[in-house]
Computed example of a mutant assay.
Amino acid sequence: MVTPEPLPPQPAVRNAPDRPDGRAYVVRGDLDLAVDVARATGRPLLLRGDPGSGKSSFAAHVAWQNGWAYHEHVVTSRTQAPDLLWSFDHVRRLADAQAQRLKPIDAYVEPGVLWKAFAPRSARAHALRALADRRPRMHGGRRPVRTDTADLCAQSVVLIDEIDKADPELPNGLLVPLGSRRFTLSQTGLDIEPEDDARALVVITTNEQRELPEAFLRRCLVVKLEHPEPEELVEVARAHVDAYYRPFTDADLLLAWELAEVVRDLRDNAERRAQRKPSTAEFLDAFHACRKLGIRVADSDERWRTLRRMALLKQDNVA
């Protein structure tokens, strides 16, 4: 038995503005109950809200908090329902055919996020077989690949991010797979069945740029994420500092409150003018910039006026 080659070192995320690990998240409102209800009913959890309100990072937080596996797929205008179940590498197959080294059809199929969540052992075994088919042959046979799946996590969180970016047929195409948790690979005819011990929480986000089909909404639990109040923004800032920097000082607390009040006023003003409101993510950008650069939240500070315009307003013609 040959041990799989180690994965290459993963890039550090300490300085990344949108951290994917889920450690720094403040759960608000009914989100904890929503997770319990979604798991009890087996229904997807659809999170609505403005961009930057914390919808996507909530899924990563649930996975991190519970020690569950985490899978995500960011939807684009070209995404189709099967892309969330599996993908087929047409380009590689064409190249192999032209080079007269065509592999078995399974070698070009890659499990998608829902396959990994609904049938993790099946997805892992398939991925390893495909890898073995693609590796060079040694000593007259295939190079062996480790197929032990005992260490797989049966519980997982799947994030389907920004589903409203896709064609309306995407949500309709997911009705059966999300309901039955089974599907058939069109290239091979293989039926993928849900594994008894696999429990998956499916979190779907929408920025409400496009109306979702009623049939899809009926099959989801829906939660609206509102903009946090100032005291909640302060707790968000505290969570990020505690998770990544430490310590959260009295100066940080004062800065967080000053920025939270600015954001509240800007949101009130934006609502009156029917304009875009600054998001929680933008509040964090301003907080980290002020904290690291020593910028004071004061109109007399030219750097603050510039930062306010760049990070929060993002409209040159707004005072």
Results as ranks from 00 to 15, higher is better:
residue 2 V to H: 02
residue 3 T to Y: 06
residue 3 T to L: 11
residue 6 P to K: 01
residue 11 P to G: 10
residue 13 V to L: 13
residue 15 N to K: 13
residue 18 D to V: 14
residue 24 A to W: 12
residue 25 Y to N: 14
residue 25 Y to L: 07
residue 29 G to Q: 06
residue 30 D to K: 14
residue 30 D to Y: 13
residue 30 D to P: 13
residue 32 D to R: 12
residue 37 V to W: 06
residue 37 V to D: 07
residue 40 A to T: 01
residue 41 T to G: 03
residue 42 G to V: 00
residue 43 R to E: 07
residue 43 R to H: 08
residue 45 L to V: 04
residue 46 L to S: 05
residue 46 L to E: 08
residue 48 R to G: 08
residue 49 G to C: 00
residue 55 K to W: 08
residue 56 S to R: 11
residue 56 S to V: 10
residue 59 A to Q: 07
residue 60 A to Y: 04
residue 64 W to K: 14
residue 72 E to L: 05
residue 74 V to Y: 14
residue 76 T to P: 03
residue 77 S to A: 14
residue 80 Q to N: 06
residue 84 L to M: 08
residue 84 L to P: 10
residue 85 L to F: 05
residue 89 D to C: 05
residue 91 V to N: 01
residue 92 R to P: 11
residue 97 A to M: 00
residue 98 Q to S: 00
residue 102 L to G: 03
residue 104 P to Q: 00
residue 104 P to T: 01
residue 105 I to P: 04
residue 110 E to N: 11
residue 112 G to N: 06
residue 113 V to P: 12
residue 115 W to F: 13
residue 120 P to C: 10
residue 126 H to D: 01
residue 128 L to P: 09
residue 128 L to Y: 10
residue 131 L to A: 11
residue 135 R to N: 04
residue 139 H to K: 15
residue 140 G to Y: 15
residue 144 P to H: 04
residue 145 V to D: 02
residue 161 D to H: 10
residue 163 I to A: 05
residue 168 P to G: 05
residue 168 P to K: 10
residue 172 N to W: 02
residue 175 L to W: 13
residue 175 L to R: 11
residue 178 L to F: 01
residue 183 F to E: 01
residue 189 G to T: 07
residue 190 L to V: 15
residue 194 P to G: 09
residue 199 R to V: 09
residue 206 T to S: 15
residue 206 T to W: 03
residue 209 Q to C: 02
residue 218 R to E: 13
residue 218 R to A: 13
residue 221 L to C: 03
residue 223 V to A: 08
residue 223 V to G: 06
residue 225 L to E: 10
residue 226 E to W: 09
residue 230 P to E: 03
residue 232 E to T: 13
residue 236 V to D: 09
residue 239 A to G: 10
residue 245 Y to Q: 13
residue 247 P to K: 06
residue 251 A to W: 04
residue 254 L to C: 07
residue 258 E to T: 03
residue 259 L to A: 02
residue 270 A to F: 06
residue 275 Q to V: 02
residue 276 R to F: 00
residue 280 T to A: 15
residue 281 A to H: 15
residue 281 A to Y: 13
residue 285 D to F: 11
residue 289 A to R: 14
residue 291 R to P: 01
residue 292 K to P: 00
residue 293 L to M: 14
residue 295 I to R: 08
residue 296 R to K: 09
residue 299 D to W: 07
residue 299 D to R: 15
residue 300 S to D: 13
residue 304 W to V: 12
residue 313 L to G: 06
residue 315 Q to N: 15
residue 315 Q to P: 11
residue 315 Q to M: 12
residue 315 Q to K: 12
residue 318 V to S: 01
residue 319 A to Q: 11
